[in-house]
Design a protein around this nucleic acid. Structure first.
Lengths: 335, 335
DNA sequence: ATTAAAAATGTAAGCGCTTACATTTTTGCG
DNA sequence: CGCAAAAATGTAAGCGCTTACATTTTTAAT
């Protein structure tokens, strides 16, 4: 059933059918109804390819992320998909993995599908060395590129970020204010937002002259889901003689590992060990006591991201970067 | 840069260009190279819409799921996306939510985008009443429909399921074999696989004549992530006087709630309370002791699903239903 | 009633590709 | 070398839609 069939049955031209399909105002009420009736009776749906070919868009957005099953990224994707759909856009998903190799290739696949924009979820798409970010610039030359929780200064790329530096700074300060003087920072990512968080921690510690040992910044290099290994690393740290009564974690998963560490070592939380997580995920509810964490208002970020994108589509000039502050959710792993 | 530009610069016809692009064998090595060189130099990528219009496919699969941020569904989507990409297909994601309303509409949106198949992830797309599943039959009339962890007998729909009945039956039997005689079953979904699991539990209990009270089947009706509410429900159950020394949970999240319940009530695990979860997610690592759970070999299911789909595309006759058995992963919440 | 402007409708030319079919070139064998 | 078959290449007709432009119809002011 094509537009020709409909036009014939309705006794009008294909242009007229196309017009009622696209809600053009230049159609008399009478013919509009006539066409709609025919469509109704015979059940026509436009051919998306032909339409795409004519309009040069299929209202589809490419979403890139490292791992769609990561707790945080999955939530982000969920929100983004919702908001896109509300704006009548579909989303093509592409998971690139954490390895730094096939990002450009992934992006090209999306671009070849003629997506109208690309949304990069998470901060591990940005390289230190500017020239390696060329693939982003190349994409941005074709369609708007949106970054969630990452920033890079390239034309036609827009960033929506949470203020990770400030969040971590405040979280650390809060921990210090409860009397902890020797916390460690536990992190697993050195991406854009990873760096911001780390700086936040450092800034707070340096303020109090508390940063005595580089060991206080504990980097975990294992799998993002390997909680036992994370716990083991903390146990080892203690065995090596580093004393700490607080853990500031860059992710709730790492924080849960800290809670387990405490349980294994027989430490009371928060009396003997305070723990602060990040992302305020469901993991905060998984332990006793429940986890203090930082909520980065992800849904708001996503909402703003999509809103910005729609405005860009409308040709409106939009800020290249929007920063949203997070919120410390105090629960029971801190005093 | 279109195929015309390339053909002109290479001094051949557009048909020839198209042929080298599609790897047709009817091209001499010399001209193939010539065309490839030009493409290389000028950087041409085919227009996906025009291609789609000609071939009537864009190698895109629609994925439907209730909530892409659910731990289990997110993993499934991740695997599916991976395997699809390995087969040079892209995936369009559509999250429908758990409400039973706009599934058909969602499906039509995907169909209108001319996806080559639809994959429904999770079992809450199947209705009891056969006539409500008409929207699936309608879709299946157009493209193959794949169901992950659900089954319905409709032409052109293929099911890949884990043997939830047997898994739960064995899990329950195992629990009983450790000496627990009064477990409760804790569940939150009455979908296809939800029912299977419940039957598995019941079967094992009835075998031992242990199913004394309907209260032993505890349905949780709150949000899928509201662990505190789950915990509260168990506490309440105990206050109401129902004794239980084991919890068989239909999902790791519910199992975590049971672990928290034990901690709050001061019960030792597994001595005073045994807990078995389901899905073997990362949550099993989040508590101490670590959670005994059922692994439903999700990656294998997904692999098989995509394999089946590809065979269907190739016109091969495939079984309408493939069942994979799960595996009880014994950890420390059971004796 | 006349007529210019506005509204509705129709015509046809793309959009960039694939592919059946036609034509030309190459191959290999008598 | 001649010729038929095979291989390579070209021509052109779609695929189903949008839309600029042309044409017809309606509206409304004189």
């Amino acid at each position: 059933m094509t537009i020709y069939d409909i036009s014939e049955k309705a006794g009008v031209s294909i242009a007229t059918v196309s017009r009622v399909l696209n809600g053009s105002s230049n159609v008399s009420e009478k013919t509009r109804k006539k066409v709609l009736d025919v469509i109704d009776r015979y059940g026509y749906t436009p051919n998306a390819f032909a339409r795409g070919l004519g309009l040069n868009t299929m209202k589809t957005i490419g979403i890139m992320c490292a791992d769609s099953s990561d707790l945080f990224l999955a939530k982000a994707i969920y929100y983004i998909e919702q908001k896109l759909r509300a704006n009548e856009y579909d989303s093509i998903l592409s998971c690139t993995g954490y390895e730094h190799k096939n990002k450009a290739a992934s992006m090209n696949l999306l671009l070849n599908k003629k997506v109208d924009a690309i949304i990069m979820v998470g901060s591990n798409f940005i390289y230190e060395e500017a020239e390696r970010n060329k693939y982003i610039a190349d994409a941005a030359a074709q369609v708007p590129v949106m970054l969630l929780n990452a920033y890079v200064d390239i034309a036609n790329v827009y960033s929506i970020v949470s203020d990770d530096f400030m969040s971590m700074y405040e979280a650390t300060n809060y921990l210090l204010s409860t009397g902890v003087t020797d916390p460690i920072y536990f992190y697993a990512s050195t991406s854009y937002s990873g760096k911001k968080k780390l700086s936040g921690f450092k800034a707070a510690m340096e303020l109090g002259n508390l940063l005595d040992s580089p060991d206080r910044m504990q980097f975990f290099s294992g799998s993002h889901e390997d909680i036992p290994a994370m716990t083991a690393q903390l146990c080892l740290l203690r065995q090596k003689g580093l004393a700490f009564h607080g853990v500031v974690a860059a992710d709730d998963t790492l924080a849960i590992a800290a809670v387990k560490y405490a349980m294994e070592e027989g430490l009371r939380i928060p009396e003997d060990l305070s723990v602060i997580g990040y992302n305020n995920s469901m993991l905060t509810q998984c332990c006793i006591p429940e986890l203090t964490s930082i909520d980065n208002t992800l849904e708001i970020l996503c909402e703003h991201l999509i809103m910005t994108l729609m405005e860009v589509f409308n040709g409106k000039e939009m800020p290249k970067k929007a920063v949203f502050s997070g919120q410390l959710i105090k629960r029971s792993t801190t005093l």
